[in-house]
Design a protein around this nucleic acid. Structure first.
Length: 202
DNA sequence: AGAGTGATGTTCT
DNA sequence: GAACATCACTCTA
């Protein structure tokens, strides 16, 4: 079982984001299937962390794709992003997942019961994978630690606006850069999503 | 179903 | 010192 090659990541963030749906994240004995993501396009995207320049924290985003960018949010949530392109300052946030393997360990780490909301939300994904900022910059395309593999792609994709970016410009707040597997119940704020081709409902 | 709120700590101004 | 790509819990309906 080989991880996806680095070349797979060296493309536009929105494109990688859609193809990321259905892939498998492997960490120790836990395997998760990605069901919801958000694309952050680079310095020109006011919602993106790189839009306010290079810092020690966002350094991995300025490098080549295929590496993790992990940061601490609200003092307690470790958010997992996948760097895309090459020097683009772009990445894809992993927002929700389904458990493929290692359910007992995931339940223990989450301190929750099994259900559709178990891994719906980026903080929950970070907790289930036992992530920390020490793993930021880790290569996802080489064996060991934290890797990304081919899985079961989504047959139907939903799209909508990104969550929690009220500080961004209206154009970037309204961009349809959140994507989800239409056939999964592990998705946040589902009613705000529409079909990919037709845009969000309401 | 929806609004409100406290927890918690690193990063950047 | 403010902001922060959140979560879980408590109300009110």
């Amino acid at each position: 079982m080989m991880p996806l090659p680095q070349s797979w990541y060296l493309r536009d963030a929105a494109q990688v984001a859609r193809e990321l749906l259905g892939t498998h994240i492997c960490r120790g004995r836990v395997v998760l299937r990605v069901t919801e993501v958000e694309a952050y396009l680079g310095p020109d995207d006011s919602a993106c962390h790189t839009s306010r320049g290079r810092t020690a924290r966002n350094a991995p985003m300025w490098g080549p794709g295929g590496h993790a960018y992990i940061y601490l949010c609200y003092g307690m949530h470790n958010m997992l992003n996948v760097v895309t392109g090459d020097g683009d300052g772009a990445a894809v946030l992993i927002r929700s997942c389904e458990v493929v393997r290692g359910l007992p360990l995931v339940l223990q780490r989450r301190g929750a019961q099994q259900g559709p909301g178990l891994l719906a939300g980026p903080g929950k994904v970070g907790q289930a994978l036992d992530l920390s900022t020490a793993l930021s910059g880790h290569a996802l395309f080489t064996r060991g630690g934290l890797t990304l593999h081919w899985g079961t792609p989504a047959t139907c994709i939903l799209a909508g606006r990104r969550v929690g970016i009220d500080y961004a410009q209206p154009r970037d707040r309204n961009a349809l850069l959140r994507f989800a597997d239409a056939d999964s119940s592990a998705v946040t704020r589902r009613r705000e999503l529409g079909s990919l081709s037709r845009g969000p409902a309401a």
